[in-house]
Amino acid sequence: MAVSLTHLEKSYQDPSGKSFRVLGPIDLRIETGEFLCLLGPTGCGKTTLLRILSGLEQADSGKVSLGAGRFGYVFQQGALFPWMNVESNVMFPLKAKGMTGSECRSRAAEMLNHVGLYGFSKSFPHELSGGMQQRTALARGLVTEPELLLLDEPFASLDTRTGINLQEMLRAICGRLSTTVIYVTHSIEEAVYLADRIVVMGHSPGRIVRNESLNLKWPRSRLSSEFTEILLSFRQTFEKLVDPSATLSS
């Protein structure tokens, strides 16, 4: 599903009631089947952008155009329903759309297989490790086979090894389903490993400072020289963002 944002703007009020600009103006287009990483420092408005895309929040001005298709959403962390077991969590979006009984169950089971949670369908979230919880969250986001998947720092709270495993798994599944993906992260390495295209956001207000397709072939190796080169170039962009004085010295 192609997505396009034109001149999107959003302001919030700070505790004293003064309005401050969080986003914009932002212009961005995402092509069907593209895996886009939205990379930016904490507080630059990445979550706000995803919330506007998903309809949880309204933009002040500008236009969001999404196809009418299904979309999935994976939260930063802890949005599994703790009173439901893994299977019920994963079946939730199916049931919400009115699907019933055995078809629900078989599609949930299939998705749980894909994310490597075979045999855990009756466990409750609090019985699972952080990695397994995020696998469940992924399965829940993907079970409707969405045309657009939005992910908000889904693996940020996991240790590096677990995070890398899940990144590989996510790429594989989204490739197979040809899902359009917007993946929000503040980790440069994660972005360079996953993305077809990286959009770097700066803050105050949130805006796009760099928008670049990667020509890295699959499978990607984190040790290859191309990889480290691209990583370095994005790290420089990032450092300028965090510390504007770096612009002067370079």
Binding site: S54, G55, L56, R70, F71, G72, Y73, F75, G78, A79, F81, W83, M84, F92, P93, K95, A96, K97, R140, G141, T144
Partner: peptide
């Protein structure tokens, strides 16, 4: 709030959220 928002973005309507989120969460 995150449970209600999660339910909303996963496509649940008001009645479904009431039955499957609000009710069990406050049980």
């Amino acid at each position: 709030k995150v449970y209600i928002e999660a339910a909303r973005v996963l496509g649940a309507g008001k009645l479904f959220i009431f039955k499957h989120v609000l009710l069990p969460a406050s049980l």
